[in-house]
């Protein structure tokens, strides 16, 4: 029996990996190019620095993928990153200290995420509009918390998260393990099920609305913590620092093969997608591209990443 289930497990995992072969290859090629351009990545400090640049993008991509797997989307990722950053920068220097700052950022992310989920799930407004409108509200809150760049993150905490030690990488592994465990719970599975087929999931006993709310809350938590990390990285807070993360989170998830209609895609794909994006930005930087050219390249790559598999599938069918 256990042999059967383990075989089934391997088969399922294998099928999930199959569509990702192209992505794995791309990751491999980009990593090789990166090592060629900047061999320093092979040292502990170099590896740490690279993973630190990748980490916030990986977290927000996970947050976005979580919603997309559930059939939703968030256009409020950027402002939420900013909010996490300014909350961390204003509380950690004060009486509450570092633990207080972490708790405050986490609560803000969870609560605002849950509120958006509440409006989407129970008041039945489309996620795209709710999060677009919320992006103004959350961005406004961030501006009120810290009207201009400032605040302070204790230097020891910055060194711990963004120094020459691979803390960020370990945290990422931890998050992925937690996701794996979460997927074994009924709620975790429900996120996939409700995204794939809401009516079917509902009839099978998944509380679709509650699962949706959970997805938004968790996504908010991850995003706010990404903001906290960004603040630790820069040593201070900035109320608009998160802006590019909205598009990049969607781009990472889409590059990783996560579909828009829910239920399609994997977290490992999303992680690879964010890694590709991060590598790409770094490689373009090394090759001397001006920052604006990255926008142009990014637009083309996103379209290519979605279009090429579509065209290949169509060509195979024909």
């Amino acid at each position: 029996m256990s042999a059967l289930t383990s075989n089934l497990y391997i088969a399922v995992q294998g099928r999930r990996n199959r569509g990702l072969a192209g992505i794995y290859l791309l990751v491999f090629l980009l990593v090789a190019l990166y090592i060629f351009l900047s061999p320093g990545i092979l040292s502990v400090a170099g590896f740490s620095k690279f993973t630190q640049n990748w980490f916030p993008l990986a977290l927000v991509t996970l947050a976005q993928a979580l919603l997309m797997l559930n059939g939703g989307i968030s256009l409020a990722i950027g402002p939420m990153v900013s909010l996490g950053a300014v909350i961390a920068a204003t509380t950690m220097g004060g009486a509450l200290g570092v633990p207080g700052g972490i708790v405050a950022a986490a609560i803000a992310g969870l609560a605002l995420g849950a509120l958006m989920g509440l409006v989407v799930a129970y008041l039945r407004l489309p996620a795209i509009i709710v999060t677009l409108a919320s992006s103004f509200i959350i961005g406004g809150i961030a501006l009120i918390v810290l009207p201009r760049p400032g605040g302070i993150i204790p230097p020891w905490f910055s060194d711990l998260l963004a120094g020459n030690v691979p803390t960020a990488f370990l945290l990422l592994v931890l998050v992925l393990v937690a996701w794996k465990i979460f997927l074994m719970t009924p709620t975790g599975l429900g996120i996939y099920a409700a995204g794939d087929n809401p009516v079917g999931a509902y009839r099978s006993g998944v509380s679709v609305d509650r699962v949706k709310l959970m997805a938004f809350a968790l996504s908010g938590l991850l995003t706010a913590l990404a903001g906290l990390f960004v603040a630790a990285q820069t040593g201070s807070g900035d109320p608009v620092i998160g802006t590019p993360f909205t598009l990049n989170s969607i781009a990472g998830a889409v590059l990783g093969g996560v579909g828009f209609l829910g239920g399609k895609g994997t977290m490992r794909g999303a992680i690879c997608g964010s890694l590709i994006l991060s590598l790409m930005i770094n490689v373009m930087f090394f090759m001397g591209f001006p920052p604006v050219a990255q926008y142009v390249a990014q637009g083309l790559i996103i379209v290519g990443a979605v279009a090429i598999p579509n065209l290949v599938a169509r060509w195979r069918r024909a």
Binding site: F136, I137, G140, I141, A142, L143, I144
Partner: peptide, 9 residues
């Protein structure tokens, strides 16, 4: 500006 943004959303 922050409050205006919140009110708008």
């Amino acid at each position: 500006a922050g409050w205006r943004s919140i009110m708008f959303g």
